[in-house]
Design a protein around this nucleic acid. Structure first.
Lengths: 198, 198
DNA sequence: TCTTATTTATAACAACTGTTATGATATTTG
DNA sequence: CAAATATCATAACAGTTGTTATAAATAAGA
């Protein structure tokens, strides 16, 4: 039990360093110093840096997936899908941290095939969640007939990822309301009844 | 003249290393070895690594901007906007390289405020190009009245960035035709006459 | 051609990296 | 309590990093 907690503490320290100073400066010594100890602790709970890196990356997926699956099933039709998509947006500090770590890892994975593969497997899990919800909507007859859920799952993730990146790379960035508005308008375009168009 | 060419050769070598092995392993020695010389050459045309990095990053924006401004003005209404957006998609090897370098830099910029600022200034330029085209369309009366070009410029860039990232992070990734289809369908949703709905 | 400037190579520096081995301390177990 | 284990600190390793200084080689200009 204490093993697990301490291991999570190391990962949390790694997250803080990555969010604050980036993945490059997240050395074993920097992570150790972040939790006011030495590298002996870090190396004791993670065999090597790759194991620590992959664990921290896995936490990104785990947190996103947990947040998505925590979205309640509402009465209205596509509202659940919209809430699932909003999970990806940097709505609070926690989600902003997830985004920063995710982007840092993604850039780090360029040129490292094994690390990029981890990213892809992570993305595949999240895509499956969206695909399943889309197929539910289609089975309920809410989706326009010509919509292919397999394609639309990618499109939706692309949109929320892009909108999330907007908060990092744009100066005239979108407000949270505008981010939500873009998502809602897009999803509305997928539905049959074009009522409440906005 | 030869100065300029040689400087570009160094930057090209840096690009190749970044695309192939990532930004972390793009050390001064690795870049020098890529062009079969020593670090003396690299240091002679770039004062330090930051200058080289920023120059390579600036090339991303320059190439994208050049490709966007090279899009011809067609007869049809929104086709130019669509072609401008397609510039961002990884349609060929050159665009894929641009994407990889861009993503590598973006991840590297997490936690480095000055580098992220460069990204933002680069993104602002590209946003301006989109904003201008959107305002043209609005002045021509092609856009739906409730569309705000300032918001839509961000939304469009978010969509193409997200769709581009799809080619990196997804296993069941979108085909080029599907990427284009998503862009075209989204832009069609912005237009007044909903003819040629696909 | 002689001189000046540009271009490239070499070697070394201090600082940092991940990792290992070893010993000390603390905690749990029998 | 004693023994065994888990936890942490210290120091050192070999390698890499960006950068500097210096000198050799090449090219350009008078």
């Amino acid at each position: 039990m204490a093993q697990h907690d301490r291991r999570l503490e190391v990962a949390a320290a790694a997250w803080r360093v990555i969010v604050r100073e980036g993945l490059e400066r997240a050395s074993m010594r920097a992570i150790a110093q972040e939790m006011s100890c030495t590298t002996g602790v870090v190396m004791h709970y993670f065999r090597n840096k790759e194991e620590l890196i992959l664990f921290a990356l896995h936490q990104v997926t785990a947190r996103l997936q947990a947040a998505i699956e925590a979205v309640p099933v509402p009465a209205a039709g596509a509202e659940r899908l919209i809430q699932m998509l909003i999970v990806f947006l940097p709505v609070d500090e926690s989600r902003q941290h997830i985004l920063r770590v995710w982007v840092a890892f993604l850039g780090y994975a360029v040129g490292q095939d094994t690390l990029m593969l981890q990213h892809q497997q992570s993305a595949a899990q999240l895509r499956d969640l969206m695909l399943q919800e889309l197929m539910n909507l289609q089975a309920t007859g809410l989706l326009r007939t010509h919509i292919d859920p397999a394609i639309e799952a990618n499109a939706l993730l692309a949109l929320v990822n892009g909108v999330s990146l907007d908060s990092l790379i744009q100066i005239n960035r979108l407000s949270l309301e505008q981010q939500e508005g873009i998502i809602r308008r897009y999803v509305n375009g997928l539905l049959l009844n074009t009522e409440t168009a906005q």
